[in-house]
């Protein structure tokens, strides 16, 4: 073989080998992505426009009928409203609590690891088991919370999880308890990324109070972290399912129906898969909208690079 041919062939063969390697290495992931994520997701979207029920074959295209039914369904509207209220309670509270805890822990040297572990504990605890513990804690007659309230002079404390007035608030409190530690850890990561020199420069520049320093340095530099934490908290709150499934099953009288639990009962209890898929689609649109808002805001606020 001539030298010219050799030098021409080698890079070509190398490129081919690299492409082949690339394909072979991504193949398992690509196949499982296709079978387990892409196709089922598309199928779920398609199902939302059919009257698919398990055992009834073939399903028929019914266009927007599922969505019309949803719109007219008081149960769904209740479920949607409950989800909004739940998210509206949990997201701000757990973000603020997470930020407060992170600032409080970072403000001093002593007890950092200990308190970080304490507040993070709910993240690694079995949600179902902790929900049961909350059920005991909030039990109307034997629960320690109401026992304490009675000692404090409250004659008839509420039945937290079985009163339609209180159930959402109780679930939201559990939600805050679950998520605050997670948010705290994210905020702590954001805080350590702020150079210590900046806070020192602020001190030398005449910033005396901790609050003024927070306003000048910490809060603006925490901006991207905060945006991210807010988005992820919103999404995690929209996904609320475990506590409802364990504690209330949507009750009493649908007072704690939430989106994913409605989707679950419609789909897997009543086996109305088409309708359930339509609810899933609503859920997906909400999640995508939240992510879109986050990306937009992030793009607009690149203040340093």
């Amino acid at each position: 073989m001539s030298e010219a041919a050799l030098s021409g062939a080698l890079p070509h063969r190398r490129r081919l080998g690299e492409a082949l390697g690339g394909w072979l290495l991504s193949l398992p992931a690509a196949l499982s992505f296709l079978l387990l994520l892409l196709l089922p997701t598309l199928a779920a979207v398609a199902m939302a426009f059919t009257d698919f029920e398990l055992g009834l074959w073939p399903p028929a295209w019914i266009g927007l009928e599922n969505f019309e039914e949803m719109w007219a369904d008081r149960g769904f509207r209740q479920s949607f409203r409950n989800t909004v209220v739940y998210v509206g309670l949990v997201a701000p509270a757990s973000v603020l609590l997470g930020l407060g805890l992170a600032l409080l822990i970072e403000a001093g040297a002593r007890g950092r690891a200990f308190f970080r572990a304490v507040f993070f504990l709910p993240v690694v605890s079995l949600t179902v088991a902790m929900a049961a513990a909350w059920q005991y804690l909030l039990h109307p007659t034997i629960g320690p919370l109401n026992a304490a309230l009675r000692v404090l002079g409250v004659a008839s404390p509420p039945a937290w999880l079985s009163s339609s007035d209180w159930v959402l608030l109780s679930l939201a409190s559990i939600g805050v308890w679950e998520q605050a530690g997670f948010n705290m850890v994210l905020f702590m990561a954001g805080l350590t990324a702020i150079p210590r020199e900046l806070r020192e420069a602020a001190s030398v520049d005449g910033v005396h109070s901790a609050f003024a320093r927070f306003r000048l340095v910490t809060w603006p530099l925490l901006g991207p972290t905060t945006l991210f934490v807010v988005t992820i908290t919103l999404i995690r709150s929209v996904r609320v399912f475990d506590t409802v499934a364990v504690l209330t099953r949507g009750g009493p009288n649908k007072a704690s129906e939430v989106l994913l639990y409605t989707m679950y009962t419609e789909g897997f209890t009543f086996l109305r898969l088409g309708y359930s898929a339509a609810i899933t689609l609503v859920f997906l649109v909400i999640v995508l909208a939240l992510m879109l808002v986050q990306t937009r805001l992030l793009d607009r606020r690149v203040h340093y690079g």
Binding site: A201, H208, L221, G223, Y304
Partner: peptide, 27 residues
């Protein structure tokens, strides 16, 4: 530090990244 009437130039400058030059100097 705020009460000492000292000013300092830090090794990495420690400029506030979210403020303009004008705002940085004005702090």
């Amino acid at each position: 530090p705020a009460e000492r009437d000292v000013a300092m130039v830090f090794q990495n400058y420690a400029l506030y990244p979210h403020l303009t030059v004008r705002q940085n100097i004005a702090v």
